[in-house]
Each structure stands twice: as C-alpha cells, then as structure tokens.
C-alpha cells in the first residue's frame, strides 16, 4: 500500500522560488527559518501564548491542511527532538532565579513535547488519534512510520504528519560548546556541504507538515513508499541493498539520492563510504545545504523529494546536472553516525 502526499506546509530557511535567495548564515553558523506573518494564520488570542516553535508547527500544519483541502484530520502525529526549548528555558530560568517562588503556569504548560500536536487538536476540536515522537534523529522517521501504519490499518483515510525543531539561542550556545558547529562562517550562501573539509556543521531548523492518505490525489502520483531506521548500524551498504530489494529496486534505479552531508569533515566520510560502489553514477544532492543540520531535517528532505518528483522548478544550477525526472528518490541520512535512516519516495 502506498502513502500519498495530499498537501504540505513548510517553514524553512529556504523554499524554492524565483526571488528566494539561497540560505546564508549570518554572523553565526546557523540558517534561520523564513517565517510567515502568523497573524494571518492563527487566532491572535492563541498566538499570545505560543512560543516560536509552537507558532512554526501550528502554522505549517494549518498550511498543509489548506493545501490538501482537509478541514478535519483523522489523526495528528508530530515529531520533535528538541521539543519546546524556549518555554522550557523560560520556566527553568525563573524557577532557578526566583528560587521556585511566584512561578506562572503558561511556560510550563507549553514546554511539553506534545504541545504542538495538542494545540493543533485543540484549535480544530479534533478528537482523533494524537501522538508525538521524540527520539533524536529518528523522531520524524518514526512519526512517518506511525502514520503509514495507521493508514494501512484502514480505519482512517488521512493523517497530518509534521516535524518541528527550532534552533534557539541557548540551545545553539550549548551545542556550540559541544563543538557541533563551524568556527568560521563565510559570507554569502552556504554552498554545497559536500565541498567542506573542516569540522563542524551549520545549524538549521524547520517545521515541515504533510497531509497523507492512501488514495492518490487528483493532480499528483507522488508517494512515500517506505521508511527505516538503523541505530549504530556500522556498514550501511547491506541495509540499503536489502531495503531497496524489498521494493524490487537496485541502486541504479534511484534517480536522485538526497543525502544528509552537513559539511562536518569528521562525519561526512560515512556517506562516501556507504555510497561507494552503490551510487557511483547516480545524481546526488546534499539537502542540508538548504535547511542546515537539525534532528528532523529529513522531514524537509522528504518535502524536497516530493517537490522534485513532481517536476516542480528548482533554481538553475542547484540540482545535479543532467537530472531527469527521477522516478525514485532515496533519502539517506545519518546523525553523527549514530542514527541512520532511509526514506524512499516514488512517482507511483
């Protein structure tokens, strides 16, 4: 059974469009989302309590529903590795500074990982299935898996699936101390991470939502075929071959490989070793060039894969030369060589 994409809503550092510049870091090694005017999308009475990540998630979810012409979802599933860091920090700071006295509930209530999924349900008065996955760089993959299983179970016909993580200042400062990010930032667009040979990456963020269904939409035949995660797998080549074989595919059938190279010289070699001998001649694109590194970046990659499979226009020279209508797109991501994942999309 295939899972079709009926609608999408994306808030990201980059969306393809004639006037949209390629994303560039500012003074820090991070790519920031281009955010919409939330007041156009969300009731101001609700907005007043929402932190940035909740706004991003809720707005992207509503946009995906509008795109799919769905008014009431039959399930809501979200993924977030970091959760609602801003509210967590607000509450934690006050708790420490005020020695646990005179604290107010709003930041605490909004700090739970299921805030976004709950908020969407509350806005829509949606009593349906509601779940949130929060397992690092598996979060989106497992939320997608849950959505696909629900649709296969046949009791519902659509699911809202979304992944949200924001890079907020404090988290950035802490992760920077772990040495995750590049020390020197060049001016201008980031360029292809595959060309970098220094340690560290560039932080990213985003909210990516999908409306999924088992029936194809009128205007598109793009489907998500499968998703798989691997925890500290060692050699990924046998896993990739087995995964493709389950769908009667060989590496040469993959019209485009979207891999998760993030420009960190310490970890990008893993992609080269895995691809060697499997994908030597396939067109390859590093999707983190457009969204930066964050745990649920594969949600953006999934959206990008669908966008490309639909034959929609990308800026000239961005995608690999000679890329034809790809037919099958494979997303291969690893997060610090611990969490590896594969997502397969096809024109069905």
């Amino acid at each position: 059974m295939h899972t079709f994409i009926h609608g999408t809503g994306v808030i990201a550092p980059y969306l393809p469009g004639k006037d949209n510049p390629l994303p560039a870091p500012d003074s820090q090694p991070r790519l920031r989302c281009i955010e919409p005017d939330y007041k156009q999308l969300i009731d101001t009475r609700l907005l007043r309590r929402m932190s940035r990540v909740v706004r991003m998630g809720t707005a992207a979810a509503l946009t995906s529903m509008k795109d799919a012409c769905v008014e009431m979802p039959e399930a809501i599933i979200t993924a977030t590795a970091y959760g609602c860091t801003e509210d967590t920090e607000t509450f934690l700071t006050k708790m420490i500074v005020q020695n646990e006295q005179m604290l107010t509930p709003t930041a605490f209530i909004q700090s739970t990982h299921n805030t976004i999924a709950g908020q969407i349900a509350l806005m829509l008065k949606c009593h349906a299935y509601n779940n949130t996955f929060t397992h690092r760089a598996f979060s989106f993959e497992h939320a997608l898996l849950d959505a696909m299983l629900l649709l296969q179970e046949g009791e519902i016909s659509n699911v809202i699936l979304g992944a949200v993580d924001e890079m907020q200042d404090t988290r950035f400062k802490i992760l920077e101390r772990f040495g995750l990010y590049k020390r020197a930032v060049q001016q201008g667009p980031w360029g292809d991470p595959a060309q970098r040979d220094s340690p560290g990456t560039i932080a990213g963020e985003g909210a990516t939502f999908f409306v999924l269904s088992t029936s194809p939409p009128a205007a598109s035949n793009i489907c998500i075929k499968d998703v798989r995660t691997f925890f500290k797998p060692g050699d990924m080549q046998p896993n990739i071959l087995a995964f493709l074989a389950e769908h009667h595919l060989k590496p040469s059938d993959i019209g485009l490989l979207l891999w998760g190279k993030n420009g960190d010289a310490r970890y990008d070699g893993v992609y080269d070793e895995t691809a060697r001998g499997l994908f030597d001649t396939n067109p390859v694109f590093s999707f983190k060039r457009l969204c930066g590194e964050y745990p649920v970046a594969t949600a953006y990659a999934t959206w990008l894969a669908a966008f490309i499979l639909q034959g929609r226009e990308m800026p000239a020279g961005l995608l690999p030369a000679g890329l034809q209508a790809p037919g099958h797109v494979l997303i291969y991501n690893h997060f610090y060589n611990i969490h590896h994942s594969l997502i397969l999309l096809s024109a069905c």
């Binding site: 009475r45 309590r49 005179m102 604290l103 107010t104 509930p105 709003t106 209530i109």
Partner: peptide
C-alpha cells in the same frame, strides 16, 4: 476578553507579585 483558567492562574500570581 476570552481569558481562560490558565489566565486565572497567571492572575493569581499577579496578585501575589
């Protein structure tokens, strides 16, 4: 004004503060 029970808890702290 459309306030709810969470706001009531916020206002309780306002009175205290």
């Amino acid at each position: 004004l459309g306030l709810d029970s969470i706001d009531a808890l916020e206002l309780i702290v306002l009175l205290q503060q």
